[in-house]
Simulated assay, not measured.
Amino acid sequence: MTEIRTPRLLLRRWNDDDFVPLLEITSDPDVMRWIGEGSVLDPDETAETIERWEEEWDDEGFGVFAVELLGSGELIGAVGLTAADELPGTRQQVQIVWRLGRPFWGQGYASEAAQAALEFALQDRGLDRVVAINRIGNEQSANVIRKLGMEHEADTSDPVTGDSLTVYGIDLTEYAG
Protein backbone atom coordinates (compact mmCIF):
# COMPACT_ATOMS: atom_id res chain seq x y z
CA MET A 1 0.00 0.00 0.00
CA THR A 2 1.42 3.34 -1.05
CA GLU A 3 1.58 5.97 1.67
CA ILE A 4 3.52 9.19 1.95
CA ARG A 5 4.01 11.11 5.19
CA THR A 6 4.86 14.78 5.26
CA PRO A 7 5.36 16.81 8.44
CA ARG A 8 1.58 17.33 8.79
CA LEU A 9 -0.13 15.01 6.33
CA LEU A 10 -0.66 11.41 5.32
CA LEU A 11 -1.22 10.74 1.62
CA ARG A 12 -2.76 7.28 1.14
CA ARG A 13 -5.12 5.18 -0.94
CA TRP A 14 -8.89 5.60 -0.58
CA ASN A 15 -11.13 3.61 1.77
CA ASP A 16 -14.88 3.41 2.46
CA ASP A 17 -14.67 5.91 5.33
CA ASP A 18 -13.51 8.62 2.90
CA PHE A 19 -16.78 8.87 0.96
CA VAL A 20 -18.72 11.19 3.29
CA PRO A 21 -15.90 13.70 3.88
CA LEU A 22 -15.05 13.74 0.16
CA LEU A 23 -18.72 14.30 -0.66
CA GLU A 24 -18.66 17.37 1.63
CA ILE A 25 -15.73 18.68 -0.41
CA THR A 26 -17.13 17.85 -3.86
CA SER A 27 -20.55 19.33 -3.01
CA ASP A 28 -19.03 22.71 -2.06
CA PRO A 29 -19.44 25.18 -4.96
CA ASP A 30 -16.40 27.20 -3.84
CA VAL A 31 -14.16 24.12 -4.04
CA MET A 32 -15.55 22.85 -7.32
CA ARG A 33 -15.73 26.14 -9.23
CA TRP A 34 -12.24 25.62 -10.68
CA ILE A 35 -12.55 21.87 -11.36
CA GLY A 36 -13.95 20.39 -14.55
CA GLU A 37 -17.11 22.19 -15.60
CA GLY A 38 -17.20 24.00 -12.25
CA SER A 39 -20.24 22.16 -10.91
CA VAL A 40 -20.63 20.27 -7.66
CA LEU A 41 -20.76 16.48 -7.64
CA ASP A 42 -23.67 14.46 -6.34
CA PRO A 43 -23.15 11.30 -4.25
CA ASP A 44 -23.03 8.99 -7.29
CA GLU A 45 -20.51 11.22 -9.08
CA THR A 46 -18.34 11.41 -5.96
CA ALA A 47 -18.38 7.61 -5.61
CA GLU A 48 -17.47 7.29 -9.30
CA THR A 49 -14.59 9.73 -8.80
CA ILE A 50 -13.11 7.64 -5.99
CA GLU A 51 -13.59 4.50 -8.08
CA ARG A 52 -11.85 6.10 -11.08
CA TRP A 53 -8.94 7.25 -8.92
CA GLU A 54 -8.54 3.77 -7.44
CA GLU A 55 -8.69 2.15 -10.90
CA GLU A 56 -5.91 4.46 -12.05
CA TRP A 57 -3.81 3.33 -9.09
CA ASP A 58 -4.35 -0.29 -10.11
CA ASP A 59 -3.75 0.33 -13.83
CA GLU A 60 -0.93 2.89 -13.77
CA GLY A 61 0.80 2.52 -10.41
CA PHE A 62 -0.02 6.10 -9.52
CA GLY A 63 -3.16 8.05 -8.78
CA VAL A 64 -4.87 10.61 -6.61
CA PHE A 65 -4.21 10.22 -2.89
CA ALA A 66 -6.64 10.73 -0.05
CA VAL A 67 -5.04 13.40 2.15
CA GLU A 68 -5.55 13.36 5.89
CA LEU A 69 -4.18 15.36 8.80
CA LEU A 70 -1.63 13.31 10.72
CA GLY A 71 -2.77 14.56 14.11
CA SER A 72 -6.48 13.87 13.77
CA GLY A 73 -6.85 11.48 10.83
CA GLU A 74 -9.40 13.89 9.31
CA LEU A 75 -9.72 13.72 5.51
CA ILE A 76 -8.98 17.18 4.12
CA GLY A 77 -8.94 16.49 0.40
CA ALA A 78 -7.33 14.79 -2.56
CA VAL A 79 -3.93 15.37 -4.17
CA GLY A 80 -2.11 13.29 -6.72
CA LEU A 81 -1.53 12.23 -10.28
CA THR A 82 -3.84 11.45 -13.16
CA ALA A 83 -3.69 11.09 -16.92
CA ALA A 84 -3.88 14.53 -18.57
CA ASP A 85 -6.01 13.52 -21.54
CA GLU A 86 -8.53 16.38 -21.65
CA LEU A 87 -6.37 18.74 -23.71
CA PRO A 88 -4.78 17.88 -27.06
CA GLY A 89 -1.38 19.29 -26.00
CA THR A 90 -1.24 17.20 -22.82
CA ARG A 91 -2.27 13.76 -24.08
CA GLN A 92 -0.02 10.94 -22.88
CA GLN A 93 1.23 13.09 -19.99
CA VAL A 94 0.66 12.90 -16.25
CA GLN A 95 -1.04 15.79 -14.48
CA ILE A 96 -0.79 16.76 -10.83
CA VAL A 97 -4.16 17.73 -9.30
CA TRP A 98 -5.55 18.80 -5.94
CA ARG A 99 -8.76 19.74 -4.19
CA LEU A 100 -9.00 20.52 -0.50
CA GLY A 101 -11.97 21.27 1.70
CA ARG A 102 -12.46 24.99 2.24
CA PRO A 103 -11.63 24.88 5.99
CA PHE A 104 -8.12 23.76 5.00
CA TRP A 105 -7.31 26.51 2.50
CA GLY A 106 -4.56 29.02 3.19
CA GLN A 107 -2.58 26.78 5.54
CA GLY A 108 -0.02 25.39 3.09
CA TYR A 109 -1.57 21.92 2.96
CA ALA A 110 -2.05 21.94 -0.83
CA SER A 111 1.59 22.90 -1.42
CA GLU A 112 2.85 20.35 1.12
CA ALA A 113 0.82 17.51 -0.36
CA ALA A 114 1.48 18.52 -3.98
CA GLN A 115 5.24 18.66 -3.34
CA ALA A 116 5.10 15.13 -1.91
CA ALA A 117 3.05 13.90 -4.89
CA LEU A 118 5.45 15.53 -7.37
CA GLU A 119 8.45 13.93 -5.67
CA PHE A 120 6.61 10.59 -5.74
CA ALA A 121 6.00 10.99 -9.48
CA LEU A 122 9.51 12.00 -10.50
CA GLN A 123 11.61 10.04 -8.04
CA ASP A 124 9.60 7.02 -6.90
CA ARG A 125 7.55 6.27 -10.04
CA GLY A 126 10.27 7.29 -12.48
CA LEU A 127 8.13 9.63 -14.53
CA ASP A 128 10.15 12.01 -16.69
CA ARG A 129 7.61 14.82 -16.69
CA VAL A 130 4.52 16.15 -14.91
CA VAL A 131 2.13 18.90 -16.01
CA ALA A 132 -0.36 21.09 -14.17
CA ILE A 133 -3.37 22.70 -15.82
CA ASN A 134 -4.80 25.81 -14.22
CA ARG A 135 -7.92 27.76 -15.09
CA ILE A 136 -7.01 31.43 -15.50
CA GLY A 137 -8.18 33.34 -12.44
CA ASN A 138 -7.47 30.55 -9.97
CA GLU A 139 -4.63 32.34 -8.19
CA GLN A 140 -4.51 29.93 -5.23
CA SER A 141 -3.64 27.03 -7.53
CA ALA A 142 -1.26 29.22 -9.53
CA ASN A 143 0.62 29.87 -6.28
CA VAL A 144 0.90 26.14 -5.56
CA ILE A 145 2.15 25.55 -9.11
CA ARG A 146 4.85 28.22 -8.69
CA LYS A 147 5.94 26.69 -5.38
CA LEU A 148 6.37 23.36 -7.18
CA GLY A 149 8.84 25.02 -9.57
CA MET A 150 6.69 24.35 -12.62
CA GLU A 151 7.14 26.60 -15.64
CA HIS A 152 4.51 28.16 -17.92
CA GLU A 153 4.37 26.25 -21.21
CA ALA A 154 1.19 27.19 -23.04
CA ASP A 155 -2.11 28.99 -22.92
CA THR A 156 -5.11 27.11 -24.25
CA SER A 157 -8.81 26.69 -23.69
CA ASP A 158 -10.92 23.92 -22.26
CA PRO A 159 -12.57 22.11 -25.18
CA VAL A 160 -15.74 21.52 -23.12
CA THR A 161 -16.25 24.81 -21.27
CA GLY A 162 -14.21 27.21 -23.40
CA ASP A 163 -12.49 28.51 -20.25
CA SER A 164 -8.98 29.89 -20.62
CA LEU A 165 -6.32 27.57 -19.22
CA THR A 166 -2.59 27.70 -18.62
CA VAL A 167 -0.43 24.59 -18.90
CA TYR A 168 2.66 24.32 -16.70
CA GLY A 169 5.27 21.60 -16.70
CA ILE A 170 8.36 20.28 -15.02
CA ASP A 171 10.62 17.44 -15.97
CA LEU A 172 13.03 15.39 -13.94
CA THR A 173 16.06 17.44 -15.04
CA GLU A 174 14.40 20.65 -13.73
CA TYR A 175 13.13 19.20 -10.46
CA ALA A 176 15.02 20.47 -7.41
CA GLY A 177 13.19 18.36 -4.82
Rank of each mutant, 00 (worst) to 15 (best):
L23K: 07
R12S: 03
L118R: 02
A176W: 07
V144W: 04
D30F: 12
L70D: 12
A113P: 01
S72K: 12
F65E: 03
F19V: 09
E153L: 14
E56H: 04
N134Y: 05
Q92H: 12
Q93L: 12
Q92A: 15
Q107F: 08
P103S: 01
L165P: 08
V94M: 04
V40M: 03
L69T: 04
D28K: 05
L127N: 12
L172R: 15
Q115D: 14
E151D: 14
Q140T: 13
F19P: 13
V94R: 00
I145V: 15
E55V: 00
E74Q: 13
R146G: 14
V97N: 04
V130Y: 00
T2R: 10
A114S: 13
E3Y: 10
N134Q: 14
R146F: 09
Q140C: 11
Y109P: 02
V20W: 06
M1S: 13
M32H: 05
E56D: 11
S157W: 14
L70W: 00
R33Y: 02
S27M: 01
G106P: 11
S157M: 13
G106K: 02
F62H: 06
L69K: 12
R12E: 00
R102Q: 09
L9A: 08
R125N: 11
A116Q: 06
L70R: 13
T6C: 05
E24V: 03
E60D: 11
D16A: 13
T90I: 03
V144C: 10
R129A: 10
R5K: 13
F104M: 04
I25K: 02
D17R: 06
D16E: 14
H152W: 15
T46M: 01
E37W: 10
L122W: 09
V167C: 10
D17V: 05
G89K: 04
E112V: 02
Y168F: 15
G89Y: 00
T166L: 13
R13A: 11
R135E: 15
R8A: 05
T156F: 05
G149T: 11
G108D: 09
G162M: 12
A66R: 03
I133D: 06
S39A: 07
L22T: 05
E74W: 08
P103K: 00
D124P: 08
A114P: 01
